[in-house]
Amino acid sequence: MFAYLIRRLLGAIVMLFIVSIAVFLIFFLLPRIGGATADDLASRYVGKTADAAQIHLMAQKLGFTDPLYVQYGRFLAGIFAGADYSTGPTTVHCPAPCLGYSFITQNPVLPDLLDRFPVTLSLAVGGAIVWLSFGVSAGVVSALRKGSLFDRTAMGIALAGVSLPIFFTGLLALNIFSYNLGWFPAGGSYTNFTDNPALWAYDLILPWVTLAFLNAAAYARLTRAGMLETMGEDFIRTARAKGLPERTVVVRHGLRAALTPITTIFGLDIGILLGSSILTEHTYSLNGLGAYALQAITSNDLPKVLGVTILAATFVIVANLVVDILYVVIDPRVRI
């Protein structure tokens, strides 16, 4: 187990390294292949009337004039040793791990990412709890009453949920429940959990439900399919033959087995969501990592893009690792 963990951790680090190189090449090498010079790249970050000399100064400041490997080396050095950058009158130290600093806001990237992480975490975890509870219970009931009105209705809603994009359901929900009925706060409302947990939850209910609507649908369908399969297993017959009440049979024996593959997908979904809940955050104007990523991309802010991509990749890789480890706990047949 221990050796396995070490092996997986090393693999994760190598993976992150590859991701960082890939992102770096996409954003720094591709434009050059397209014919852009260092000054062309830098001209994105200066005012519209800047002349060639000013652009060139900027290119030098941003390091575009150096060879790519030097630039990547600087990025790596920042991660392991930190970096210094100038604010004009003074120099500020960006301690390791320094993911670089933004060309646009001229702020270090990592503090911004950490600052925004709680929003995304709140959104992802809260949404996940909502969709998991609704999706799984709807899936179980649907499976047990296969073909019933409930099953057909739930699966119909699930289909709608999977097909309707968040920016549609989200804006619709805001319009109805926030602006017309006034039950929930407007988009962009967010309170820190540590400041006021009740208000935190209240502010996030609409985003959670919107996010859950999309994912609950998928989980309902997954759970239904899993339960239909599991409830036909021999061990369910055994459980009944023991005289267990049907509820115990369904939950302790049926759902327990059906949840195993769902746990895997759930873990990965959370990982992905932590890295990029772009649509939900954009729709609800929440300043989390997803919104940050979107801003970074639209403003061509390469260090931000790089930072947020690496963070997102980290989440997915860690989620993968956690799922694999969790799998061992969940399914005793899997042993490392």
């Binding site: 297993e233 021999d234 061990f235 017959r237 055994t238 459980a239 033959a241 023991k242 005289g243 024996h253 327990r256 087995a257 195993t260 969940i330 399914d331 005793p332 047949r333």
Partner: peptide
């Protein structure tokens, strides 16, 4: 309690978890 049953394939008849 009053009636009990032994099944054919005990591997699939017992809950794996």
């Amino acid at each position: 309690k009053k009636m009990a049953m032994i099944f054919q394939d005990p591997l699939s008849a017992m809950h794996p978890f």
